[in-house]
Amino acid sequence: MIIKSIKGKGFSAFLLSAMVSLAIFSAPAIAGKKDDKALKKATKTCQKLYPSMTQGCGLSFSRRHGNCLGCHQIQKGAQPGNVGPPLIAMKARFPSRAVLREQIWDATVKNPNSLMPPFGRHQALSESQIDKITDFIHTL
């Protein structure tokens, strides 16, 4: 994984400062010390809550990755926001996994004023991270 392979101190410091100072559109997919820490913490929580989907759940719960709980209720997820609809009955609402993935990749295609960040289009998450999150969300 990208996040784990970049461990050099100087380089990750550079990445962090680059994330702050560069125009965000050109920023790389999330990778930095704080991000690693947030992901580790979320993944640990997920080992108990969703043991068969640890990675997807971790990326969804991490505040510095999907942070789905920022806006959506998810069963077993602590302190959810309520700006977006609860993520329940996902297979009924999104029979096609591909459509769900498109929604996560860029929700503004269907609704230009959507509050949901276009995770794929703005490279807030990598393509493989989006895949893992989609797999997890689709099981809810």
Binding site: F25, L69, P80
Partner: peptide, 25 residues
């Protein structure tokens, strides 16, 4: 604006009173 693609109004006009995680807008 920004990677998360949000305007001031998105949160503070469209969604005041709603929560982002535990924080009320």
């Amino acid at each position: 604006r920004g990677q998360l693609n949000l305007s001031c109004a998105n949160c503070h006009v469209d969604n005041p009173g709603q929560r982002i995680r535990g924080n009320t807008l």
